[in-house]
Design a protein around this nucleic acid. Structure first.
Lengths: 96, 96
DNA sequence: GATTGACTTGTCAAATATTGTCAAATCTAA
DNA sequence: TTAGATTTGACAATATTTGACAAGTCAATC
């Protein structure tokens, strides 16, 4: 359930002693949604990730990379048996 | 637009000189949909892949692997810049 | 043990995306 | 041309995702 991006955001936010409510306000979303994003119960949109990075003064590319990794993981998680092989195929085409 | 699974299905189907209509009938879907699946314009569901494998006497796991690879690729295609790094993260967790 | 503030949880309607069909168009071989 | 095979585009039906709201838990403080 937990994901890379949410954990990272929570870590950054707590390091700065900011409240969920404050980050949520900056994104203009409900605090509840922000809570879900940090706990990996909801996915953030790309724009939300960018906005979070800006508010937390974090590296945008780093957060987006975690966000994409989460998406990949949720794609493969249901197919553990063939995931590795599929990743190899996808990766091969990536290098082209 | 083209994808691994569709290409493979088309290749197998043509090798057996079967019509789209015949495969579609076995899946109980419209021929148009089968055409779209082969050309990568639509994704097949997991059950459809299984059914296609059975009808074409192809290796089910192989087709499902291509199907999953397509899903991964469509996840990362919009983010070419960070895709490789994200794949590395996802892959690391896979090994656990 | 009541109050307060931060966070979490469940549910819902609205928005968005996906699916499969149909009809029409295009292609191909005779 | 004609017939059959495939493709295309538009559309309704479904399914999924989104975010808000209300109610809940939890911990600290009074």
């Amino acid at each position: 359930m937990v994901n890379h991006l949410g954990q990272k955001i929570r870590e950054l936010r707590e390091k700065k002693s900011l409240l969920l409510r404050q980050v949520a306000a900056h994104l203009e979303v409900d605090t509840a949604l922000m809570s879900k994003i940090e706990r990996g119960e909801r996915n953030a949109s790309k724009q939300q990730v960018i906005s979070i990075a800006s508010f937390l003064k974090a590296d945008e590319e780093e957060l987006l990379t975690l966000w994409l990794a989460d998406k990949i993981e949720s794609t493969i998680v249901e197919e553990p048996k063939i995931a590795y092989e599929a990743m190899k195929i996808a990766n091969k085409n990536l290098k082209k």
